[in-house]
Amino acid sequence: MANQMIKTIVLIDDHPIVREGLANLLNSVAIYKVVGEAGTAKDGIEAIRALKPDVAVIDLMLNDVLALDLIEQTTHECQNTKVICVSMHSDAAYAQPVALAGASGYVNKANASKTILDAIDVVLSGALYFPKEVHQNLLNSVRGIKTASTPLMSLSSREIEVLRWIGQGLTKHQIAEHINRSANTVEAHRTNIKRKLGLQSNAELIRFAALNLPSGSV
């Protein structure tokens, strides 16, 4: 098979065993070649910039941090690289922010060995690979229809990330360090989140976050 038909892939996941399994699976397909791997967002974006792969497969949770910034960086800086996000969480509330961050696909990690090849085929064809309800919400947003299958759907990708840290009991200053923003910015996010979710107090916000975004669920 001609070399120009080979599609290159970079894997970014903080679990070496997961990367090894995916690499073995993908390299078993004649037209796919894993050309790079990384375990952190920093190493991941460097690999993507250097290798300019056709596809970047990115774990949504990297070292306990949502990888939304990495997804946004990749889609902004390397527009020819298609991003597929893998996550332990199958809820569309997580897939929606991933789509808004610019990813072309979203795969449940538990089923990745069965679905990742289909997902890569689909995104390389120029289409999207997301749960059905996410497709509908994206379509509705284009049409100007405001809808959400869950309360979380009303939140932006950054607000989802901030809410998750709130649920883990972090202060606004600690959250600011995690997302590399000021404490005032975090407070603004908290205010917007409460408004969107119809919550009146910080206590209600913490309880909602703890119930809806449990630690380690992504």
Rank of each mutant, 00 (worst) to 15 (best):
G36P: 00
E77F: 13
V65K: 11
H15A: 13
N202Y: 03
G144H: 03
I160E: 04
Q168T: 10
L213R: 02
G198A: 06
V134R: 04
H173K: 11
T185M: 00
R49C: 11
Q136L: 15
A103K: 01
V35I: 14
A30Q: 11
R195F: 11
E177F: 08
E77T: 10
G102V: 04
D118V: 05
M88N: 13
A41H: 01
S217L: 01
K146V: 12
T147I: 06
T115E: 13
L163S: 13
L152F: 07
I145L: 11
Q200E: 14
D13F: 01
A30R: 02
A119I: 04
A103L: 07
L199C: 09
H178A: 05
L62P: 08
L163F: 08
A209D: 07
A67R: 01
T8K: 10
V134E: 06
V55K: 01
V18W: 00
L163G: 13
I17M: 14
L117S: 07
I17N: 05
V18C: 08
S182C: 07
A210F: 02
A127C: 05
S215R: 08
T185R: 00
V107S: 06
P131F: 04
Q79D: 09
S149M: 03
P16A: 14
T150G: 09
L25W: 02
S217E: 08
A50V: 02
I48R: 01
N212V: 02
V18A: 14
A67E: 04
I12A: 10
L60I: 06
R181C: 07
G21H: 00
S113D: 09
D43E: 15
I48G: 05
V123K: 05
P214L: 03
K33R: 15
C78T: 14
A110Y: 04
G102S: 09
S154N: 03
W165Q: 14
L66S: 12
I175P: 04
S182G: 13
A188N: 03
A209N: 03
N3A: 10
C78W: 02
S217C: 13
V57K: 00
N192H: 05
V218C: 11
N3S: 15
E46H: 09
K82Y: 12
A148P: 05
L100I: 09
L139S: 14
D43G: 11
R195A: 15
E20K: 08
P214R: 02
L100F: 03
S113Y: 10
N108V: 13
I175R: 02
V218M: 10
K52Q: 15
L25I: 10
T150A: 13
C85K: 03
A188E: 04
H173D: 15
T8N: 11
G44D: 01
S104N: 08
L68F: 15
D69C: 06
N111A: 12
E72C: 07
K42M: 06
K196Q: 14
E204F: 01
K196P: 11
Q79F: 02
I84T: 06
D43L: 05
I120C: 12
L155K: 04
A23W: 02
M5V: 07
G216N: 10
I45S: 14
A103E: 03
N80Q: 12
R164G: 06
L62S: 12
P16K: 07
T8F: 05
T147F: 08
R164F: 09
A183Y: 02
L199T: 09
L25A: 12
I116L: 14
I31T: 15
M88R: 05
R49P: 02
N24F: 04
E177T: 14
K82M: 13
I58N: 04
D59M: 05
A112T: 02
L205K: 00
